[in-house]
Design a protein around this nucleic acid. Structure first.
Lengths: 196, 196, 196, 196
DNA sequence: TATGAATGAGCATTCATTCAT
DNA sequence: GATGAATGAATGCTCATTCAT
């Protein structure tokens, strides 16, 4: 449009990045339900600016996590053809855990019943579940995983295991996820959960 | 004091029980962050009465769950001398999962950073961790469990696995807990988490 | 309940009356869309107190006007059997105009599209339209009024005529209502509005 | 100035016309209190452009209605010398009602106490009141109208009668205006409003 | 001139908490 | 002890208005 539209747009883009960074920080400290005002303050912008860029809280949450979700999905694609699918799955899970654990509050957000946050669920589901499923399938095809294990359920469980707290930090989460994966390698007894 | 001191105390006790029952219901429906007013209304008492009996929300939360926590601990004691410690552990975990899953919002409460809710952590720790630990030790002594598995971490993980949501219900939680336990039966590789 | 419940309830009742008085004043000055805060301030109570007594703005508006609406309906009942229905109608309309004109902002409120204010419409409709209709019917039966005139439409029109403004005060409104009534005494030409 | 000064001015004029058209539409849909942003969006221009052309909302409102007001005044001039002044008045009122009723929200705007909207009042007064007055005078001179009827008051009343709502549409408004006019044809009783 | 990003005042609403009766 | 009316801090959200480009 006008000659200066470019620099204005650039400024807006910078503001948007500030907001994403600020929101990421605040989400870690206070969770995804943190007051919008706090995010605005952290980013050094006005309240209205947050709403301009992200009309709803959910959009902000999604934007904050989208990049890393995409990276995670890409990693799955890269590991897809691995000759050792079991190992590939482990490596991917490491990355997934790292993502979840870094983003304090995401676990809780994933479990939120806020209908506006369904888009976050969708984001995870649409991108990560298929990504994870491909790795699970490959591992199952080699007999390195119980074929009854479902990508969605497993990711949900891993997501939960990554909700940290006092006395339960990143390393504990990693250990528990490792053991859960180990438990997914062997078929469960018939009276057990056939459709995990 | 007055002749009716006894009956007054009895009435207070009844009020307290009404409150515990009402709070348990409301916690299931709305989570532990439910408005205090709702609990008062459900119990049919005034708002001030809730505050008289339980000055802080945390105290109410703790009181609500204490009874079931004690039951859970008692079950552990009953199962303690079992000749098949691995099976005993499984049965106890079933009961623990049932407890967690029934109490919607408890999982989230356990993960809350509200310092006032630390007492809930303490309650769990002081009663259930030793109870669980005794079962773990027995199983480990028989070689039916990796001795590196810590009661606190395991319970924390199980607690997280019991946070339900859409597409992840009670049965999914049970399945995941089963697989986590299965993963705890075998020693993890040295580079893995040595102190789970 | 408790021995002091009476005096507390009395206090609450007094607060409620203060609120109604304050709201009536504020509505006159600022219209029915006035900030709730202003009403609270005028009444000398906290914001929450307004919400306790009147959870929605509409409930407050309705409460403010209900008493006078009832009085108006009662007057219609008193005038119902009058031997001179035309005159009775005029006297009632005078009272109705007085009511509308005194309550600045009510006219605008009646025309508001706010769905929450439908209850005010209903209040007017349910009580005043039948009251007015009985007077209209009586007048029509005596040939003192065009039977095509509908109570609802007439009241709506009168309500609009009572929206005051600079250069158009109470007396102007009265005059215009009188002329409108006069115009309702004779049948309109066939090409005109047959169903006013 | 610059060679393109002319075309720049022409562009500005076009922008102004877009704005007027867009505002007229939006006023019909949302009333004169519609967000400025909506008008800018409808016109396909930036927010600042609206403010450049119409620094205050009132100026925009006035500009939007000025053209039609002028048309209305012209019609009065055309009808001025009619041999049947009563009929001329009716025809003019029809056009006036059509104008008011088409412009949803104008009625309410006319009644607004916003001091900035006084200019709208002035516009109406300065152009339409004299126009209407000439028709009234002619009719009164023929004995077809009560000479006590004032142009301003009558127009104000008609304006109010044209505030539509559920159950009170254009036809109802026309009917009520007709009856009001009918009521203006006969002199009111002495105790009535002598200076309508 | 035109643009639209940024700002922040303003208002609605909720709910934890206090305290007089 | 019990009650619930009152309070106001906290927070969400909208939109008029300014101003740098």
């Amino acid at each position: 449009m006008s000659p200066s539209a470019g620099s204005r747009a650039a400024g807006a883009q910078r503001t948007r990045q500030s907001l994403l960074a600020a929101a990421a920080q605040v989400f870690v400290e206070q969770g995804v339900q943190a007051p919008i005002r706090d995010i605005a303050g952290r980013a050094g912008v006005g309240l209205g600016t947050v709403y301009r860029h992200f009309p709803s809280r959910a959009e902000l949450v999604v934007a904050v996590y989208r990049h890393q979700v995409d990276e995670c999905a890409q990693l799955a694609a890269d590991l897809a053809g691995s000759p050792r699918p079991g190992e590939a799955l482990e490596r991917w899970m490491d990355a997934f855990v790292e993502f979840l654990v870094t983003k304090h509050g995401l676990g809780a957000a994933l479990q939120s019943e806020d209908p506006g946050l369904q888009s976050l669920h969708s984001l995870m589901l649409d991108t990560l579940v298929p990504a994870c499923a491909s790795l699970l399938d490959a591992a199952a095809a080699r007999g390195e995983l119980d074929p009854d294990v479902t990508a969605y359920t497993l990711m949900r469980a891993v997501g939960n295991l990554c909700i940290l707290g006092p006395g339960y930090d990143r390393e504990h989460a990693r250990a528990m996820v490792s053991r859960l994966l180990a438990g997914c390698r062997t078929t469960m007894p018939p009276d057990g959960p056939a459709a995990a």
